[in-house]
Amino acid sequence: MKRLLSTAFATIALAIGTVISTSSPAAAESAPGCGLVTQIGSTAYVKTSTGQTAASVKQFKGCGKNYAYVYVWDSFRDTHGSWKISAAIQTSSETLGTRSALNAGELWSGGTNTLTVCTQAVGAVVFGAESRSAATGSRC
């Protein structure tokens, strides 16, 4: 009986851990209209003038395209009533796939046909009188 209860508790703990881990913002590896994508390069962070992290910016590749992804941190959402976010892919000569949204928690840029050139993901957050942005490192 003791072993049965121990096994039951272990199964419940694993199930809870699975739900928690799959509901985190890290599950952003599926771009709209594409499916599975792979992060390339490191993550950049949009910071407010007071140093608060407002959002994370990542670049992904998949389906023969590049995508920018912006995730607005819960701590920022909890302390700001309104904001606008933008996500885009930038080459050395142009900005592509730009998308914007009001009060969204996350946003994908449009997919860009730029896998053969150097690119970086750019994300911006506009709130109150502030406009802040960040870009990932360039990937070639």
Rank of each mutant, 00 (worst) to 15 (best):
R3G: 03
T7S: 14
A8M: 11
A8E: 13
A8P: 05
F9Q: 11
A10N: 05
A10W: 06
A15Y: 08
V19C: 13
S21N: 12
T22Q: 10
S23I: 09
P25K: 14
G33L: 09
C34E: 13
G35S: 14
G41V: 01
T43V: 14
A44G: 06
A44P: 00
A44D: 10
Y45F: 15
V46L: 14
K47W: 08
K47L: 13
T48V: 00
G51H: 12
T53W: 08
A55G: 07
F60Q: 02
F60K: 03
N66K: 07
A68W: 04
A68F: 06
D74T: 07
S75N: 13
S75D: 10
S75C: 06
F76G: 05
F76W: 11
R77Y: 02
D78E: 11
H80Y: 00
G81L: 10
S82V: 03
S86K: 12
S86I: 00
A88M: 13
A88K: 06
I89A: 01
Q90C: 07
Q90A: 04
Q90N: 12
Q90L: 03
T91Q: 05
T91L: 09
S92K: 10
S92W: 08
S92P: 02
S93P: 00
L96M: 13
S100T: 13
A101V: 01
A101F: 00
A104H: 06
A104Y: 10
G105T: 01
E106K: 15
L107W: 07
S109G: 05
S109N: 03
T112A: 05
T114F: 02
T116Y: 02
T116C: 02
Q120W: 09
Q120K: 15
V122E: 04
F127L: 01
F127I: 00
E130K: 11
R132T: 04
S133H: 11
A135K: 12
T136F: 09
G137V: 07
G137T: 12
G137N: 10
S138I: 08
C140W: 04
